[in-house]
Design a protein around this nucleic acid. Structure first.
Lengths: 142, 142
DNA sequence: TTCACTGCAAATGATTTGCAAAGCA
DNA sequence: TGCTTTGCAAATCATTTGCAGTGAA
């Protein structure tokens, strides 16, 4: 009895991992598939792990944490700071801004066409350089 | 032998607390003094507690946490999201923006004269309203 | 007196880590 | 084979909470 070969690990995931200098292991491949197969996503370690498990992917929470950080360090993901209790990650690493729904703990991209105009960025203080400008629009129920 | 009366609990602290609807207890008074006596400050629960203890103020870390949240809920402090591991608080509750020195975990106001121009703020999605627009300029060593 | 507040220690929850087993090159 | 990566469970760290004692009105 041979194990059924799921159509996992699509080419792009492997390619993406190699390009990022990460060894394409089963777990990384499958998580990369989840993360990048469809459109952009916002997620936490817990939600990604739950999603993986629900799709039959066998991976530990610890590995999800490790993977999220490796992906972030490799530029595949971006970490978004909106909640002091949880870490959010965003598969969209291009420059963009966020809505954060405080009551729901939900994060969403601000559509490109509606982005806030960020102008007049101050000079970075002596000895530093600007790594990023984060803009978060916090929303509450009206 | 009577206890030496330190010039603690200055009037403004008590007034400020009453105005915020908080009962002026010894701990709250002394913490408010630390927080608002001098210029604006950026701090974490740990740093405030350490500062208090070093100045001879007897207060537990748990009370510092409680107090920071009560002050925040009363509008005396503002919580700033920059680091997923720690909560930062800012005594400046007026609209302004921050520099965050990633390597040092240090937070600083961007001088008002150099603030980023935030324009074209998008409409809040159906059923929500904009609570705040957070702008953080992340700095790394150059 | 009464209810809010405080401190302590224990509980929590997210995240990290040590280490042996398993996997990739 | 040799160095990575993974998984598990234990450890950590910031923060919160239960509860009995203390304090403010």
């Amino acid at each position: 009895m041979r194990k059924r070969m799921r159509e996992s690990t699509n080419e792009s995931a492997v390619t993406r991992l190699r390009a990022a200098g990460l060894r394409p292991t089963r777990q990384r491949n499958e998580l990369a598939d989840l993360l990048f197969r469809d459109g952009h996503r916002h997620l936490t370690a817990e939600t990604l792990h739950a999603d993986a498990v629900s799709k039959g992917i066998r991976v530990s929470l610890a590995t999800v944490y490790n993977t999220l950080h490796q992906f972030t360090n490799s530029g595949l993901l971006r970490q978004v700071m909106v909640d002091s209790t949880r870490s959010y990650f965003d598969t969209n690493v291009t420059e963009h801004q966020h809505f954060y729904y405080e009551e729901d703990g939900m994060l969403a991209d601000i559509p490109g066409s509606e982005e806030i105009a960020v102008g007049n960025i101050p000079d970075a203080p002596e000895g530093t350089k600007v790594a990023r400008v984060d803009v978060v629009v916090r929303l509450t129920r009206s």
